[in-house]
Amino acid sequence: MSRVILEISHLHKVFDTNTVIEDLSLTVHEGEVVVIIGPSGCGKSTLLRCINALETIQGGEIKLHGNTVSKNSKDLHEIRQKIGMVFQNYELFPHMTVLDNVMLAPMKAQGRKKSEVREEALALLKRVGLESKADSYPRQLSGGQKQRTAIVRALCMHPEILLFDEVTAALDPQMVREVLEVILDLANAGKTMLVVTHEMQFARAVADRIVFFDDGQIIEQAAPDEFFDHPKTDKAKQFLNTFTFERDRSTTNRA
């Protein structure tokens, strides 16, 4: 298998007295798309936030390309530059245009040349169909457009891994597709991604591997078809049932 990008070993995360993640180990290889699913509040988002040290961890280790990610490491901001994160609520900078949002970090954090960054930013915006919005402000965009901008903003840093934290959860249904298509497109382009989502069909389509997560632990992981068609654990079966209940109404044996 290709080289390891992200290696999480024995991660332990506690909020006050509440254990959110318990002894979690997960490895993501280059070009792999890992989709994390699980019930709300099971620690999926927290896991992503730990990976770029937005949360402190109480045990274990997170390594990106062999470099430890920790809130205390001096070169944390350099490690973070290699981790692209897209949030549920976009979190664009409201006082900057779309183009400036995208260009800020490549110029200031990476010290790249303005002309070069601008060219790339415009090309990326074009790729997600936002070239006409380059000079708009976030408030002038729809939710889907904001989220696509946020994805471009992360991409422009040339991250080695992209983290998507329920990026369609705040979107109207008709806008979900335009965002998911961008992510599918990135998967096809061979980007390494860790995706937390509640969109099961999307998960199945985009994932190389499904990680089912509950109570701060990995319960089951498998290739998407295998996981969705033949879940092994009861918890996973139960979880998947909550999604298929409606669809299976005609064939179910329930009297």
């Binding site: 770029n52 901001h77 530059q81 290699k82 979190e91 840093m157």
Partner: peptide, 8 residues
């Protein structure tokens, strides 16, 4: 957070 996540 989103600014820190960008590596600034």
């Amino acid at each position: 957070e989103s600014a820190f996540a960008l590596g600034l």
